[in-house]
């Protein structure tokens, strides 16, 4: 997507956006991992450590739509963790890049059980 400035255009790639989202996901409490969207992708990603793994970015011409595929720690309140995650990612993207974020969908792909109560 592009933003105009006085001299020309600023282009920001989906990948750049995904990297920022990825960084805020790994710092977000309750999220213990990201999962690739599908199996075929997961094989290629084992070979290369991808800084955008588990993050999908889509730009509709006006705003950004984000899909996050995450693994959450068993024993946390999943709904709260997912909500906070979505808010953090939206906030980070809007403050760092200044583009409107229309939606952040959180797909919980699994739970990690570190300890059984």
């Amino acid at each position: 997507m592009d933003n105009d400035n006085l001299l020309g255009n600023i282009y920001i790639s989906n990948r750049a956006i995904a990297t920022i989202a990825y960084q805020s996901v790994v710092e977000s409490y309750g999220v213990v991992g990201l999962a690739p969207k599908n199996f075929a992708k997961s094989i290629t990603e084992v070979l290369v450590k991808d800084p955008t793994r588990g993050v999908d970015v889509h730009f509709d011409g006006k705003a950004v739509h984000i899909d996050l595929f995450v693994i959450i720690e068993y024993g946390t309140r999943i709904k709260t963790v997912a909500t906070t995650l979505a808010e953090t990612v939206k906030y980070k993207l809007e403050t760092l890049i200044g583009i409107p974020v229309a939606e952040v969908n959180v797909h919980v792909r699994g739970l990690r059980i570190s300890n059984i109560d």
Partner: peptide, 17 residues
Amino acid sequence: LMGARGNSGVILSQIFR
């Protein structure tokens, strides 16, 4: 756990857990 609100609430619930 059931009443965890916000980020700090989730962390607090993990502490108690």
